[in-house]
Nucleic acid binder design. Sequence first.
DNA 1: CAGGTATCTGAGAGCGCTCCCATTCACATT
DNA 2: AATGTGAATGGGAGCGCTCTCAGATACCTG
Lengths: 337, 337
Amino acid sequence: MPTLEEIAKVSGYSRSTVSRVINNDSHVSEKARSRILKIVADLDYQPNVAARSLAAGRTQVIGLVIPTAVSILFTDPYFPILIKGVSSACNQHNHSVMLWLAEPEFERRTVQKVISNGLIDGVIVSSVILNDPIVRSLEASSLPFVLVGRHPNAPDASYVDVDNARSAEEAVMHLLRLGRRRVAAITGPLNMIAGADRYLGYRNALRLRGVVEDETLVVEGDFTEDGGYLAMQRLIPHHPDAVFAASDAMAVGALRALRDQGIQVPGQVALVGFDDVPLATHAEPPLTTVRQPIQQLGYIATETLIDMVETGDVHGRRVILPTQLVIRASCGTRARY
Amino acid sequence: MPTLEEIAKVSGYSRSTVSRVINNDSHVSEKARSRILKIVADLDYQPNVAARSLAAGRTQVIGLVIPTAVSILFTDPYFPILIKGVSSACNQHNHSVMLWLAEPEFERRTVQKVISNGLIDGVIVSSVILNDPIVRSLEASSLPFVLVGRHPNAPDASYVDVDNARSAEEAVMHLLRLGRRRVAAITGPLNMIAGADRYLGYRNALRLRGVVEDETLVVEGDFTEDGGYLAMQRLIPHHPDAVFAASDAMAVGALRALRDQGIQVPGQVALVGFDDVPLATHAEPPLTTVRQPIQQLGYIATETLIDMVETGDVHGRRVILPTQLVIRASCGTRARY
DNA sequence: CAGGTATCTGAGAGCGCTCCCATTCACATT
DNA sequence: AATGTGAATGGGAGCGCTCTCAGATACCTG
C-alpha cells in the first residue's frame, strides 16, 4: 500500500503538493496535477483514513445509530430501507458508514464511543425514544448530527422527517369519509415521536369530523407485526368498523388477527397502515397506507449531515418530505354495515 | 475530549503507563492501574481510534460488505438479521462495524476503499456472486477476511456457512416421503453458491428416491418474493404437487401465485421454504422451512474474524452451523391427489 | 528593469497514540 | 555490601497525513 510519501518520491514533487492534488486544492499547476494523478492511478493509491483523520480532523466517515429499544424492531423493513438510503448517499459522496445498533447493555459505552472515537465526522440518529439521553449527549458534544424524525426536546437539532400528524390525519379522514364511524387506532409507542404524532393526527381527524374519541378504541402497539396482532385482539371486542394502524407491520398483524376471527376486511373492518413497505402490497387484501419516502429520508439526512460537516454550518436544519395516501383494497369504498 | 497525555498529567504517571492500563497490559502495578482507571472513568476518556490505528495498525473496526447484485435484495429479512448478528458480536467484543452496500456503479472504488483505507482490521463478506472479483482482490490483499457462505473458487478462504446441500436434500426428502411425486424447485440464483448448493441438494434427494429430474419443474429465482411469484406462475402449467423454494421470501411469493390461481396449499401443492425468517411463521398456511441460524452466522463470522486479527493466525477456517427442518402446515402430511 | 503581485511549491510541526528501549527500583542471592 | 534479577515506569521515535508559513518562480505594471 503506497503512501503519500512514496507518491511524492516517484512524482518528484513534495508530499505537500501531492496532498494538494489529492484534496483537490486549486493551487497546483496543471502539469503537476496530471502527473501526480497518473501516478496515483498507476499505484492504486488510497489515502489512509486514520492518518488523515488525525491530521485533519475529518474522515469522510459518518455514523448511523439505531438506538436501544428500536434495534429490536430491526426485522421491520423500515430500517433496511433507511440504511440503504444512507449508504447510497455515502457512496455518492465518497463517504463511508459506521453502523451502531445500540443494544441496551452496551448503550452508555456505545454513545461515548460514537461521540468521541474521533473516527466519524458526524452522526445520523434514527427513531430515538423521547427521553433518550443520546440526544442530550450529542447536543453537549461538538459532533454534528442529524435526526431522522423530529425531537421536540431538542429544538435546535437538525432533522429530516415527514409530517406524521398531518399524514395520519389524512388517512383517518379517508376512513371517516368512507362512512366508518368506529375508527380504532393501533398507535406506535407513544414515547417515540412518530408514534405520538401519528396518534395526534388520528385525534385531529376525529375532532375535525366531530367524532368523540372512545378510549376503548385506542391501543398502544410497538410497531411490530406481533404487537399489531395483540392490539387487534384487544380491539375486536369493542367492535370497531375501521382501524388505523401506525405502521404497516402492525397493520399486517392486525389483518392476521381479524382473519383468525373470521372478520372480513374491508367488509366488516376497514384497515389503513403507515409506511408503504413492500409488505403492504403483498398483504391480502393489499393495504391502504401512507407512503413515506423512507430511503429518501436516509439519503437526505446523510446529505444534510455531510453538508453540515463540510461547511461547518451546524445550525439546526429541518427538512420535511411529503407523504402520500396510497389507496388499495383494505380500506374498502363504503361501509357495509 | 481528554487525551492520553492529559490522563497521564492528571494521574502523575507517564503516557506509557496510562497506555498500558488502557490496553490491559500486565506490567503495571495495581496501584497505578486503579488510580488511572478511576481518572479514565471520571474524565470519560475514550481512546482516539484514528491515532491508535496509525500507531498500532489495529482499529477495532471491522468491515461488513454486502456486494453488488445482492444489495438489491436488501429488503429480504436475511440481511437485517445477519447485520444484527455482526453488530451484536462487535458490541460484545468492543469493536465497531463499517457497512458497505456495494452499489454496482461504485463497486471498484468500494472494494479498493475497503481494502486499503487502513481503517478496518478485517472484513466480512456476505453472499458473494461466484465470479465476483472482490474475493480475488481480498486474497491478494493482506486484509483478513471471513466469508458468510463458502466460496468454491477460494479454497483457502475462511468461511462460516450451513450445509446448504444437505439441508435442501432433507427438505425435499420430506416432501417425497409424504408421497409427493412431482416436486418442483424454485432455485436461488445459480451463480450464488447458496443457490447452487440448495439446487444440488434438491437433485440429490430426487436421485436418492429414484425420481428422474424433470427440467420443466425447475425454475431459477432470485431469492425475492416477486421472483418466487413469477417462478411459480411458470411452474403451475406443469402441475407440480410440491414445491421446494430456496428461500422463504420466494416461498411466500409462490404461495401468493398459488392462491391467485385458487390452488390449495398444502392440499394440491405442498410447499417448503428455506431460512425460517419471521415471514415464514406468519404466512397462511405457516411455512415448513429449513431453519438456518442467520444471526449466529453473522455473530460467529465476526468472532472468527476478530480472533484471526488478534492472533494473527489467518489460515483458512471453516465453521458449519447446523440447520433444522421446521415442519409447519404448508407441506401437509399426506398427498391427497 | 526595478518593484510588486499572484501562483506554485516545499519544509516542518504535530494530530494522539503504541511500541521499543532504557532506566529505575525493590528485592533476593551470594 | 556487591551483584543479579525482574517488574514497573518513562522517554522518544514515528505511524501517514494536513496545514501553516515561508520561499521560489513567473508574470505584470509603470
